[in-house]
Design a protein around this nucleic acid. Sequence first.
DNA 1: CACAAATCGCGAACGGCGTTTGCGGTTTAC
DNA 2: GTAAACCGCAAACGCCGTTCGCGATTTGTG
Lengths: 228, 228
Amino acid sequence: MSDAPAGGPDRQPIWSRPERGSRGPAPAHSRDAIVVAAITLADTEGLAAVSMRAVAAALGTGAGSLYRYLSSRDDLLDLMTDRAVGELRPYPQVEGDWLETMVLLGRRQLALFGAHPWLLELIHRPSGIGPQSLAWFDNCIRILEPVRCPVAAKFEAIAMMTGVVSLFARRESPAGAFSFAGVDLAAYPHLVAAFSQPSGPAPRADLVERTLRSLLTGLLLGESTEAG
Amino acid sequence: MSDAPAGGPDRQPIWSRPERGSRGPAPAHSRDAIVVAAITLADTEGLAAVSMRAVAAALGTGAGSLYRYLSSRDDLLDLMTDRAVGELRPYPQVEGDWLETMVLLGRRQLALFGAHPWLLELIHRPSGIGPQSLAWFDNCIRILEPVRCPVAAKFEAIAMMTGVVSLFARRESPAGAFSFAGVDLAAYPHLVAAFSQPSGPAPRADLVERTLRSLLTGLLLGESTEAG
DNA sequence: CACAAATCGCGAACGGCGTTTGCGGTTTAC
DNA sequence: GTAAACCGCAAACGCCGTTCGCGATTTGTG
């Protein structure tokens, strides 16, 4: 009972837990090195390949040793998320139109999802709000300062923007069209009719930005219209 | 090798695989009974509690027996998803405004996510597009028939509507506000300033519908505006 | 009717996972 | 100097999805 791992009695979240105590030999690794190894693994082989054993092996050690630095795999995923969100920095210091600045931030998020597709599986977790995510929120609130609307609406809008960007990012991942192998198409007449008609022009390339603009103006400025 | 489970050489997806052959004793269970048990388990104890062993135990059998009816846990999750989507039926036969009909469908989806929160973790999977999901797509395409725009744009809009609804559904789940335990708030000045100011009026209740209306009109009708 | 083929339920087993535990050795605080 | 705290490590625990082999049962075919 006198020998508890770093997580030990982990009453408090990982963000406010010291990396190491003052006594004992110098650690062979570091929290950040573990997170970097995990992110590299996730980038190359997918999130499912990020097992404690695999991450430890990438660092040349055993799975159990990681628990000297974090208290659970969930902690590791939280750290991965926050570190990736940190890649959104530095934030553009545009002081002009807040809407265009937000759209720019949205494009940055989209690029981040492209660089780290595993983020799509992690951002929706209830935990995992670390310092970098807070800094990103803080920056968005700063940009939205000239907007006159309740704070709650701003938070809604920021969260919804992130969500919509993640939806677009998912669309661009290699998921691809479903296969109709062994499906009785006769049951879906409107679907086959739609597919059999000429496909028409390709969707516009700036769909994300247009959607974000419409979404943000609707959520932040449209509060007083259409009484009911 | 002459004794292969129902999944056997599962070249084709679960939707087009017969439930059982013609020979042999009558099965003690059924695919649907397994799926119902799994959904009940997910509704009450969450998706993480849906293990093959737990589902089998709920049916009074062993985990291995389930593989007579399906070939993997992923198959089970696909079946769960499709069966839940089937609860969206019967579809409203409104023949008036297509936009209002779509918004109504969106509200139905939101209610479905409320009834089965585990759906939020499953809809984004690349697999799992079963007959009920196809029927839902088919119905949406039917509703959007009067809209003059490329088919691809309609599919975009339907998928985006489902995605946005899922974002709102996630917001209403008991996730709740993040805790600032042990965080240095001084690093986020705009955040604390926003939180310290009076909260203002609560966000409008019909936020989902307004967002959906704006999104659908933007995606389906706004193609010709704003050249460049 | 006889018989082979196919399917059934079942329990044991395999490999992988996250996590815990106990140990010998190392560093620091008092 | 000594005791407490920390280190790396390897073994082990329990759960997971999945596979396999068994005896028993039903069906299609000659």
